[in-house]
Structure formats: structure tokens, C-alpha cells
């Protein structure tokens, strides 16, 4: 009697636990829907938001190219769960193995899904690999704070294989690896000459204000010029919708140009940082998603350098 009741209690407990796990798993579903944009070329477009416990960090675009020689994945997403769900989404489309996973740069939403893939398939520019080694841990901790449970089991896994700029042939796709910088110290863009699709990474944002924690605005502008000169048919930005023309490049350039001029002028006018924060971006940028938050972050990240330049006439030391 007592054994039976214990057993039935355990059964109920197990059922309850199973149900709870199922619910939790359903909660942690990113609902990834790859969209075909060209021959064998798929994109997963994230939300134009800030990181949150609601979106689990899925604010980023990832993509993959299916070739007879295997699958090339471009960026692995913000968490282990995202990486695993991306891998399953790929497996639903092709039985070809993932042969290479490229991280376009060292920001957390572009590499924290790496654990889902074979370590030897991971590759990035040398500057990206060293960036992941030096800052990845802090990024990961911060993502746990911002995205919560979605991050469960996520650890930093840096690629071991360094990439160099130049052509890369993969199963008949003639790819061009373009090593740039400006959004971070190492930004990789990938042009598929066979389809005309340009994966621009975070050098290009579309209808979402760019992020600037590691930005060098002058280098970034040069990188944009270079990208605009490539003959592409479609552009996949790091954040925001895919486009068929250079509009996202021009929009990113315009925002960065305004940001640079505004901060330079503010520093030359002797504004305190709190006064710079009170400036409202012009009307043309107000429709960009999260523009207020990104402006605030950019002021914090970039203004001290402008300020330092404006104050750089050192006072005569009376010491």
C-alpha cells in the first residue's frame, strides 16, 4: 500500500517534472525560420531590439550557404540554445554536414552559439579570435544578466582556425573573404560571387541604430565605402532586414557621420556629457529601432575620446 502510493506519487512527480521541462523547452524556443534569399542561401533575421529575457538575445542575423561540399554557417547566434536550434534548422533543410562556421566579429550575439558546432569547423579573423579570448568571458556574463535563462549552458568557445582575406571556393560557390575593421578591430564581410549575396556582418545595420562599443568611426566609414564598391545583388546586414540595394550602407554611413559630427561639435562647444545625452537625434534617424538607447550608449562609449581631443591643449603645469 505504502509502496504503491509512493510509486504513484513518484509517477505524478515525474509527470509534473516532465511537463515543466517541456514547458521550459517551449519557452526557450527561438522559433528560428530560415528564409531562402538566393540559391542555397538562407538567412535567419533577428528582432530589431535590445537584448532581453523575452528575445533571448535573438536580435542578430545569421545565415548559411548550402553547397554540395557542405554547409558554411555565418555567425552562430547569442547562446548555446540558439546554436543548437540553428543546427537543427539547417538539418531540416539539408543532410550536408556543416563544414565551416565563421564568426564575423567578436560580439557575443555572433559567436556564443559556437558550442553547438564541431570545434574544428569554427573560423574567424585573427583579431576576432583574440577578441573572443580576451573579452568573451565578460560578454558571456553580461549576456546571462541581459537574456537570463536562454543562456543556460553557454560557454565561450573561440575558433582555432584563423582566416585570411581572399577567395574561398566551397562546393562551387566562389566566395570572397573581405577583412575590414571599424565596427570592431576585425570585421569580416563575405561576398558570394556565385549568388551576389554580401554578408556584411555588423559593418551594416538596417533600420536599427548601429552599436559602437568597439567602434572606430573613421575606419568604419572606409569599410562602408569598400562594401558599397562591391558588386552585390543582395546585402545581409548584421541587424535588420535583408536589402537588394546599398540603402542600408548609406543609412549606416549617415548615422555614423551624424554621430561623429555631433560629438565633435559638442566637445568643441565644451558640453558636459550629460548635456550631450540630452541632444535628440535628427528626425531622419528617429525611425531607426532602439535609436535613443544606442545614442545614449554611443555617447558613453565615444564622447570621452572627443572630449580628450578638445581638451588636448595641456595646461601649463605650474608644478
Amino acid at each position: 500500500m505504502s509502496i504503491l502510493s509512493r510509486a504513484s506519487r513518484s509517477a505524478i512527480a515525474l509527470f509534473t517534472l516532465g511537463w515543466a521541462l517541456l514547458l521550459a523547452a517551449a519557452d526557450m524556443d527561438y522559433g528560428l525560420q530560415p528564409v531562402a534569399i538566393a540559391d542555397g542561401t538562407w538567412v535567419l533575421v533577428g528582432r530589431s531590439e535590445d537584448f532581453s529575457t523575452t528575445n533571448g538575445g535573438n536580435i542578430v542575423n545569421t545565415g548559411f550557404i548550402v553547397t554540395p561540399a557542405g554547409v558554411l554557417v555565418i555567425d552562430s547566434g547569442p547562446s548555446r540554445a540558439y546554436g543548437e536550434q540553428l543546427k537543427r534548422a539547417i538539418a531540416r533543410i539539408t543532410d550536408k554536414p556543416v563544414t565551416m562556421v565563421v564568426n564575423t566579429h567578436h560580439h557575443p550575439d555572433h559567436f556564443l552559439g559556437n558550442q553547438a558546432f564541431a570545434p574544428e569547423s569554427l573560423a574567424a579573423l585573427p583579431g576576432t579570435i583574440s577578441g573572443i579570448h580576451s573579452e568573451g568571458g565578460a560578454f558571456n556574463e553580461n549576456m546571462y544578466r541581459l537574456a537570463g535563462d536562454w543562456m543556460a549552458g553557454t560557454d565561450v568557445l573561440a575558433p582555432a582556425k584563423p582566416l585570411a582575406a581572399g577567395p574561398l571556393e566551397l562546393g562551387g560557390h566562389r566566395l570572397e573573404l573581405i577583412a575590414l575593421d571599424g565596427h570592431t578591430g576585425a570585421d569580416l564581410a563575405i561576398l558570394d560571387r556565385s549568388t551576389g549575396v554580401l554578408f556584411a556582418g555588423d559593418l551594416v545595420f538596417n533600420d536599427r541604430a548601429p552599436t559602437t562599443p568597439h567602434a572606430n568611426l573613421a575606419a568604419w566609414q572606409k569599410a562602408l565605402d569598400r562594401l558599397e564598391g562591391l558588386g552585390f545583388k543582395q546585402i545581409v546586414p548584421g541587424h535588420g532586414p535583408v536589402a537588394k540595394d546599398a540603402a542600408p550602407i548609406r543609412q549606416t554611413r549617415a548615422w555614423l557621420g551624424w554621430l561623429d559630427g555631433n560629438l565633435r561639435q559638442a566637445a568643441e562647444d565644451g558640453l558636459d556629457m550629460t548635456e550631450v545625452l540630452a541632444i535628440r537625434p535628427p528626425a531622419e534617424f528617429r525611425r531607426l529601432a532602439v535609436v535613443e538607447a544606442e545614442y545614449r550608449r554611443s555617447v558613453g562609449q565615444l564622447y570621452p575620446a572627443y572630449e580628450q581631443q578638445a581638451l588636448s591643449r595641456p595646461g601649463r603645469n605650474a608644478r
Binding site: 565644451g270 580628450q308 578638445a310 595646461g315
Partner: peptide, 21 residues
């Protein structure tokens, strides 16, 4: 250590602003 950079601005509303680092 202790190095000071500074600049003085005239303010539109009158007076001056000093900023130092």
C-alpha cells in the same frame, strides 16, 4: 599622474565654462 588638460569657453548666456581632465 596629476597631469591636467583644460580649456575655457565663453558661454552664450554670459560668463565662462571651464572643463578640466
Amino acid at each position: 599622474l596629476g597631469e591636467v588638460s583644460s580649456r575655457v569657453w565663453e558661454r552664450k548666456e554670459g560668463g565662462e565654462r571651464i572643463r578640466l581632465r
